[in-house]
């Protein structure tokens, strides 16, 4: 045990994800020895992130204003909506530069074992957004794991009766990989989702 504030710092750092007691101690001593200006900047950013950042009132993405940058952008296609689990996924899809529509962040995936059902996600907000009939296609871009698939299945059941085009991201072989190393689940999916090359 260290004295007072040093121990407090170690305890606080230890509560962060992926940081254990030894790691917390290492970071605490690094901060103690670091330049005061750097530490002040870090402290300032930590306070600011909690003060300024909130969630976009339209899509649920992290934003610094009432609406996020993507929802405010008039060049975005209003007819296509991409449903993702987390804000991190928005960034990942934006990196592709393939998608010009808007997003809807659910805030997770349906996982009954962790007590997360549709009521805990932003599903009601999604349905409200679709009510005005502007969107004609919804792309379900939840993770390709069991919870993500189940969430997509649930949303499909909800969205189909609205007469929208509902699509799901394809899953299959990673670009730059070897076919022989693919596992049978992924390879099976790649076969299921194969497409014709002549159109």
């Amino acid at each position: 045990m260290y004295e007072g504030v040093v121990q407090d710092l170690i305890d606080e750092l230890g509560r962060l994800p992926g940081i254990g007691p030894k790691g917390a101690q290492r970071i605490a001593f690094y901060l103690l020895e670091a330049d005061p200006v750097d530490v002040k900047r870090l402290a300032h950013v930590l306070v600011e992130v909690k003060d300024k950042v909130r969630f976009c009132s339209v899509c649920g993405n992290v934003a610094e204003d009432e609406q996020c940058r993507i929802c405010r952008d008039p060049r975005r296609d209003l007819q296509v909506l991409c449903v993702v689990e987390e804000s991190k996924d928005v960034v990942a899809i934006e990196r592709t530069r393939e998608f010009r529509g808007r997003y809807h962040v659910l805030g997770g995936a349906i996982s009954p074992i962790e007590g997360i059902g549709p009521e805990q996600l932003r599903v009601r907000e999604l349905m409200q957004r679709l009510a005005d009939g502007v969107v004609i296609e919804v792309i379900l871009a939840t993770d390709p794991n069991l919870e993500g698939e189940a969430t997509a299945t649930y949303l499909t059941r909800l969205l189909k009766p609205l007469g929208l085009r509902v699509t799901r991201l394809a899953s299959g072989l990673p670009v730059g990989g070897d076919l022989e190393y693919a596992d049978e689940v992924t390879l099976g999916r790649a076969f299921e989702g194969r497409r014709s090359v002549d159109d």
């Binding site: 069991l146 698939e149 189940a150 299945t153 649930y154 059941r157 049978e184 689940v185 099976g188 999916r189």
Partner: peptide, 13 residues
Amino acid sequence: PLGSVIGGDYRAY
């Protein structure tokens, strides 16, 4: 595989 069959049916999931 079983996981994708069950994951594809919300009630079964």
